[in-house]
Design a protein around this nucleic acid. Structure first.
Lengths: 231, 231
DNA sequence: ATCGATAATATTGTATACAATAAATAGAAT
DNA sequence: ATTCTATTTATTGTATACAATATTATCGAT
């Protein structure tokens, strides 16, 4: 693993995890000591983080950690829905191959198998997130649009735009295991719409799907507002 | 102007303008000589260009100039419509101030004044592009969503996603000056929809507006296919 | 005490040397 | 001739010294 990657991961973790507080300036030299990497890879990592939208470039040079409010999280989810919605629509309009549909269904079948045990273990949920991610990733790939792929990368990098491990704890609550079933129903709907070339429906479903993820996420936050990144 | 900015602009111009051909690898040392800038700012510029999607990062390190086909241009326009559509919708949903509406209308009035002379000079068109850009930029700003702003920056950087000077020549043709009126009508529609809090309509109009820009652009390309960037 | 100018310091921007890695070439074995 | 390996070369990755700039502190004037 390159030094740049090392710095990037460490910094991301510090920002999300609260090691660097919102509004705090990211000075290069101190980071050299904290991360045991020279300035060059740190600068590269900072540039990347700025592109990802996690930190802000100061007009006079340097960076500060952004602070995100609840509205930002909602917007991020909305944007994610928009991009994945476009992906789904393009899949429908461009008649993806039967093979592609099968691959999507394969993921969904795996999820279904997970959901057979009504009580999901932590491992199950981790599994779920993994497969879920693959499903969405494949969907984007199948749109055959480099632009959509490109935007999806950006949207995925936004904090909390993706269903995260934070949502993990949530699953313990009895009230929320239904979420998985609803999400799965939406997954099926999206694939069905694509198969039937119903672009508009595919897009709408993908958007709604993002809203569901958001709802779960926000509930978690309201339970424990102590999240480091939140203003 | 910093060396990095200098390198960035020069490289962008070389890629779009054809000085660097699609598929060509961008080796740092030769670029140092061609641009009279050291490796450090060149590396920074290359990283930025990769984020913008103009060049591809090789898994083994280094970059190659991307080649864009007609589908990519269509997708870019589509994506632009999607982002500006979301911006318009948010403006509507979030009840932008009367001041904001006035500012948008101010731009539109300026455009209207330009369009009074049926025959537009090159200067007029340049003016138009400038004002048009400000209108769209303001629209995005007024959505008060940093996510939308963020994505808009990405989408704007995509080649040909924005109405460009290429379209300039096109305006000479008698058949195409109507385009400006249609575009203006859409502009008015978008603002009206925002004013009346019709989110869905605002979004749809913004999307359609992007398709119109695309149509113009594609016509130009079909007339003179010799464009450097096109595969 | 407050403001402004100037000096001191901190911080980023740039160049470059060196290290690590990838690509290309040449040579040997089959 | 072809493939594999060894060696060379080309290219990127990293560290660091120096330059330019921005920020902060100091001091004097009002």
């Amino acid at each position: 693993m390159s030094q740049t990657t090392k710095a990037l991961i460490a910094l991301r973790e510090m920002i999300i995890g609260g090691g660097i507080k919102p509004g705090e300036r990211l000075v290069e030299l101190p980071l050299v000591e904290r991360l045991n990497v020279s300035r060059t890879p740190i600068r590269a990592a900072l540039a990347t983080l700025a592109e990802e939208g996690l930190i802000d470039r100061l007009p006079s040079g340097g960076y500060v950690s952004r602070k995100f409010n609840e509205q930002d999280i909602k917007d991020a989810a909305d944007a994610r829905g928009m991009v994945e919605g476009m992906a789904a629509r393009l899949c429908a309009e461009r008649s993806v191959s039967q093979d592609a549909i099968c691959q999507l269904n394969k993921h969904l079948n795996q999820i279904e198998r997970l959901l057979e045990n009504r009580r999901l273990s932590s491992d199950d949920i981790e599994q779920y997130l993994l497969i879920n991610d693959r499903f969405h990733q494949d969907l984007v790939q199948m749109s055959s649009s480099f632009v959509v792929e490109h935007l999806h990368e950006r949207v995925r990098a936004l904090p909390f735009a993706s269903p995260s491990v934070f949502a993990l704890a949530e699953a313990e609550y009895d009230q929320s295991w239904k979420i998985f079933f609803i999400a799965q129903e939406q997954h099926r709907g999206i694939v069905e719409a694509i198969e039937q070339r119903e672009g508009m429906r595919a897009e709408a479903l993908a958007r709604e799907h993002a809203r569901l993820a958001l709802k779960t996420l926000l509930r978690v936050f309201h339970n424990r507002t102590s999240s480091a990144q939140l203003a």
